[in-house]
């Protein structure tokens, strides 16, 4: 396992197939489709996974958090093969390593339980510290998100605002000082005036505590603001992955290009008309590139076979035949 030591996250041939509907007439939906990638870095990173609804980004997050089991493939976090996490002890170690922050702060806590219960339990059960130590750890974590134990103790979920609750849920995730926090759309339910504070909090925690983040989002502008590395997902596949500054400056994949053009940005007014895909679910079953029917560059080859991620050399990988030199050469030869 030595070769995995250095990488924060390594995903190998990861596939998750959901069965929808009954036993007989049920359909299969490949939410994550044979995804492989690796995140390596000397310093703590914020890695964004960007996708629209149905891209498989949330499924990927849930697989990494081991909330669901993959149909196929492996995930290594900091060298740990998470499919081997089985016993109680394994799970404790796993939860010291990885912690989640979910989208909706209002469904992250049971409305009938006091909120401080979650934080104290995290210290007591995950870290197995004494009660006194637990109180101070919880207070420290809350202070780093701009709250304190005094402010939250004895209160229930409905006594907090959405922004406060989301900060509490981040504080809880911080308590075990995890290597990795997986945040699934953590700001999509909070208001603009609070969103920036949470974004900045992630940045600070990343720099000051050395915590790595996986930021799952549909929002390109916050992903750009936050992340060092990003992956773009489309219908279960990663279509482009690499340093965010590079991707935003010069998107390679036609889908990334389309996404960037669709951001409602201040200062740039939209001009051209765009094509909308009508029937979305059909694309899962495509034999070739899943973006085929929306792609302005697509040809017959894209319809027949599926592109794989190829290294572009500058730290970026892209899954598009446009950039597959060998293939274009082979194609041009066969045409002659």
């Amino acid at each position: 396992m030595d070769r995995n030591k250095t990488s924060l996250l390594k995903v190998e041939n990861l596939t998750k197939i959901f069965k929808i509907g009954g036993l007989v007439l049920g359909e299969k939906l490949t939410a994550v489709d044979n995804v492989s990638f690796q995140i390596e870095s000397d310093k703590p990173v914020i890695f964004s996974v960007i996708g629209e609804s149905g891209s498989g980004k949330t499924t990927l997050a849930r697989l990494i958090l081991k909330l669901i089991e993959p149909t196929n493939g492996k995930i290594f976090i900091n060298g740990l093969d998470i499919s081997r996490v089985k016993s109680k002890e394994d799970f404790l170690n796993f939860r010291r390593l990885v912690q989640p922050v979910f989208q909706d702060p209002y469904d992250s806590f049971n409305p009938m339980k006091k909120v401080d219960n979650y934080l104290l339990k995290t210290a007591l059960k995950i870290l197995k510290v004494s009660k006194r130590k637990a109180f101070s750890l919880v207070d420290d974590a809350l202070k780093s998100v701009g709250l304190s134990f005094e402010k939250i103790t004895g209160k229930f979920m409905n006594q907090f605002s959405g922004g406060e609750l989301q900060r509490i849920s981040i504080a809880r995730a911080l308590i075990p000082k995890p290597k990795l926090i997986v945040a699934d759309e953590p700001v999509s339910m909070v208001d603009a005036s609070i969103r920036m504070n949470i974004m900045n909090l992630f940045k600070e925690l990343n720099i000051n505590f050395g915590i790595n983040f996986i930021y799952i989002t549909h929002d390109l502008s916050t992903a750009y603001y936050l992340s060092d590395i990003m992956a773009i997902m489309y219908r279960g596949n990663i279509v482009e992955i690499g340093p965010s500054s590079l991707i935003f400056a010069d998107p390679l994949h036609p889908y990334t290009e389309l996404l960037l053009k669709s951001i409602p940005e201040v200062g740039k007014e939209w001009k051209e008309d765009i094509k909308l895909s009508g029937i979305e679910t059909e694309e899962y079953g495509f034999e070739g590139c899943k973006f085929y029917n929306r792609c302005p560059y697509a040809d017959e080859h894209c319809k027949k076979s599926r592109p794989i991620l190829i290294d572009k050399g500058d730290g970026r990988k892209v899954a598009c035949f446009k950039y597959d030199d060998n293939l274009s050469r082979a194609l041009s030869k066969s045409l002659k």
Partner: peptide, 10 residues
């Protein structure tokens, strides 16, 4: 998700 959070709280 509160069940998931409970799990991750040990």
């Amino acid at each position: 998700n509160f069940v998931n959070v409970a799990k991750f709280s040990g």
